[in-house]
Design a protein around this nucleic acid. Structure first.
Length: 482
RNA sequence: GCUCCCAUCGUCUAGAGGCCUAGGACACAUCCCUUUCACGGAUGCGACAGGGGUUCAAAUCCCCUUGGGAGUACCA
């Protein structure tokens, strides 16, 4: 059997979309599982909408997700170039080949004529397709039209009857009635190829064996198969994935939140979690273990088991999963990723060691890295602002004041801020003292916490005390005493 | 309009005729653990869209209806 070769072919008219990332993922998994090659091709034939910034974003996002390609514009490969704008000269040759073989013809219709045809069809409740009126133009007629200054497009001559069918890797047997497909343009009048033509030529030249893509391409498939056959090329296998939808079942777009991989990263999602989550949209692990690395998923992956229905992108599970990854992540790496999210604080005032301690103590409840900004606020600055509600219900109560005064006068001096084991015990003693007076341990700690952090919940008190140090803690407690 | 795809808990899904009084995960609720929030553990809530067939037997196969999605460009 020939080598398995798959590709992802994004067009750089925007940042890498999660939907594209999922398609890339399934291609990558299929390649990995089958010892094949994963190639990246940039489809930038629409020069107006394409930009280098987007190309860079695609590279960065794919790499960040761990979806490394074997061949592509930047790394090269045996079937390059891998960027369509550098391949413009090869499409006309194939188009000419099709004309010569009678599979395609020049069409001189103007935009207006085409519009009129379409409107006519709609008026008569017919499925509109190109009439084919330029199909049999004589050389004289063509010359005349050319003399008028009309630049022809090239259309593929679709067979009048029969059907085009293929066995979809995920959907099974699919077929299309040829007479419903109009002669479609393969080369625009400006000399550039249309999408349907460019993909086929590129996939053929790049020896792509399996095309795994979104089901929005299903109806293109018939046209593409016709081109392959007309060109005498081997038709690859196709597999169409269901789409990712927003919770309201519409296309996932900006108004639903982030859509680009890079936006998710900026919001504090880990790429490991994102890719894991997206893999679960349409695929499920055979052992029920949902949290899996890319390699583990690849080992377990089978394209035929992928769900053929659409799936909805819900943040709940992504958030949970991201939290799981945050909890398990190597602490050094997490610290690095966390830094940008704490840029509003003066990080220079905190030692590397304390920074790590802080992250270790605050990573537990968070779901996205951006939660850190709020959750770490009390670790910075000399003073804290006590939330009004907390002040009223805890700090300013008689019990609260008593506890704080007691801490100020009898406890703080003896607390060992540099020894967490001792500090831990000392706090236990402190709780025990008030417990004898009938105050719950929880409430005792609340008073301390409220005065020191301004809140009722947060990281472990021992860690907070250690990082803040005796002076700052004393200062904040005094400030809370009326 | 026409063509195509899809249809199991709110969501992601397991299920490929009997193992299903339909399993798991997220979310939600309650409880336990606990110096807070969380984590973790336990329990609970919760679905085969509807209707016809086929069969001894259907979530699983077929048909229709309904619902959702996609395509219908000299965009990709």
């Amino acid at each position: 059997m020939d080598e398995i070769r798959v590709r992802i072919a994004p067009s750089p008219s925007g940042n890498l979309h999660v939907g594209t990332a999922r398609t890339a993922l399934f291609n990558y998994l299929f390649a990995k599982k089958n010892n094949g090659k994963f190639v990246l091709r940039i489809e930038d034939t629409d020069l107006d909408r394409s930009s280098q910034a987007y190309i860079d974003n695609i590279y960065d996002s794919l790499k960040a997700l761990g979806l490394n390609w074997d061949e592509g514009p930047d790394v090269g490969g045996p079937y390059g170039p891998y960027q369509q704008s550098e391949r413009f000269d090869i499409y006309p040759k194939y188009a000419q080949k099709l004309i010569d073989a009678g599979y395609a013809y020049e069409c001189f219709c103007t935009q207006e004529e085409l519009e009129a045809e379409k409107e006519d069809s709609i008026k008569n409740h017919r499925a509109h397709k190109y009439s084919g009126k330029c199909r049999n133009l004589s050389e004289e007629e063509k010359a005349k039209l050319r003399a008028e200054g009309r630049k022809p497009s090239i259309r593929f001559h679709v067979p009048e009857d029969g059907e085009t069918k293929f066995n979809d890797l995920v959907k099974g047997e699919l077929k299309f009635d040829n007479k419903l497909i109009g002669d479609f343009v393969i080369m625009k009048s400006n000399g550039t190829p249309t999408y349907n033509f460019a993909v086929v030529v590129d996939d053929m030249e790049m020896k792509i064996s399996h095309i795994i893509r979104g089901e929005d391409h299903i109806s293109n498939t018939a046209k593409q198969i016709m081109i392959y056959e007309a060109l005498g090329a081997e038709v690859p296998k196709f597999g169409h994935l269901g789409m990712i939808l927003a919770p309201d079942r519409s296309k996932l777009s900006k108004r639903h939140g982030a859509t680009a991989v890079s936006e998710f990263v900026e919001k504090g999602y880990l790429t490991e979690a994102l890719i894991n989550f997206v893999a679960l949209l349409g695929w499920s692990p055979s052992d029920g273990q949902e949290i899996k690395s890319l390699d583990e998923i690849a080992a377990d992956f089978r394209i035929g088991e992928v769900s053929s229905s659409n799936s909805i992108f819900e943040y709940d599970k992504l958030n949970w999963m991201n939290g799981q990854y945050i909890k398990k992540m190597d602490i050094k790496k997490l610290c690095e990723l966390a830094r940008p999210f704490l840029s509003k604080y003066d990080l220079s005032e905190m030692s590397e060691e304390n920074f790590e301690k802080m992250i270790l103590a605050t990573r537990e409840p968070i779901t996205v890295l951006s939660d850190l900004e709020n959750d770490c606020s009390y670790f910075f600055g000399q003073d804290v602002e006590i939330e009004p509600d907390v002040r009223e219900k805890i700090v300013d109560t008689e019990q609260g004041q008593n506890i704080l005064k007691y801490v100020d006068e009898n406890e703080i001096a003896k607390w060992d801020f540099d020894n967490d084991e001792k500090l831990h015990e000392q706090l236990a003693d402190f709780r025990a003292y008030f417990k004898e007076k009938g105050i719950k341990p929880k409430e005792t700690m609340w008073a301390l916490r409220a005065a020191v952090t301004g809140r009722t919940h947060g990281a472990d008190m021992v860690v907070i005390l250690e990082i803040l140090g005796k002076e700052r803690v004393a200062r904040r407690i005094k400030a809370a005493i009326k």
